[in-house]
Amino acid sequence: MKRALTFLAFVAVIGILWESLVALGAWREVLLPRPSSILRYLAHAFLDGSLAEAAIVTARRLFMGYAIGIATGLPLGLLTSRFAIARDSIGVVALGLQTLPSVCWVPIALLWFGQTEAAMLFVVVMGTTWSILLATEAGVRSLPPVYLRAARTMGSKGLHTMFRVLLPAALPAIVSGLKQGWAFAWRSLMAAEIFVTILTGFGLGHLLHYGRELHAMDQVLGVMAMIVAVGLLAEQALFGPLERWLRVRWGLLG
């Protein structure tokens, strides 16, 4: 609570300083508008519904892309952690592709899918799958072997071992992988929305892009603030409870 107050005070001080500097004519408002006009834009866009609409479009894409990323990355990660042949093939590919910044997927996505939702999803999925795959693999491979040995003596093997032992045992590592994957998905989507202009569904990235085209700096900054807020909120809502639950059950996880 005290920390929140400190932060609010900090924001207020910066805001007032900024506002008065603009009022004194320290710089041109086309380049950096005053906080009050950014707030005015946000209020306006909120009231006419354009902001909420864009946020919903963006959130829908994000969740879909992220879900597909998990659905592919997690099982593949389990495979590469268990089978040398998968590790030496898919694992190596993942290692390489993970270093590729997600914007680099935009050209190929446009060529393959055109200016469509599919192109957008493709970029997000490529941005998340590999990091989730690698986190899962690392999580499973760093497990103490005694879990596996204990499970084997009790008759566990094959898929049972994979889903009843490896997966839950690696869960703390997997959750931090998922969190990282989430950050990647969010960044990829913003890249996709800024670079892929489509007519169906106008996301936050598009709003940002058109703000620039229109030289509406209040819009650019307002949407940026909105993107930060959505990112923070979603992460809290998604991972807060999950991490709390892990802490209760596993005991140690920070």
Binding site: R149, A150, T153, G155, P168, A169, L171, R249
Partner: peptide, 17 residues
């Protein structure tokens, strides 16, 4: 491994989940 022989390991090896 077989259910006719069970092991208690050096460290408990319990499943924390």
């Amino acid at each position: 491994p077989g259910r006719d022989r069970m092991v208690m390991f050096q460290d408990a090896a319990l499943f924390p989940w």
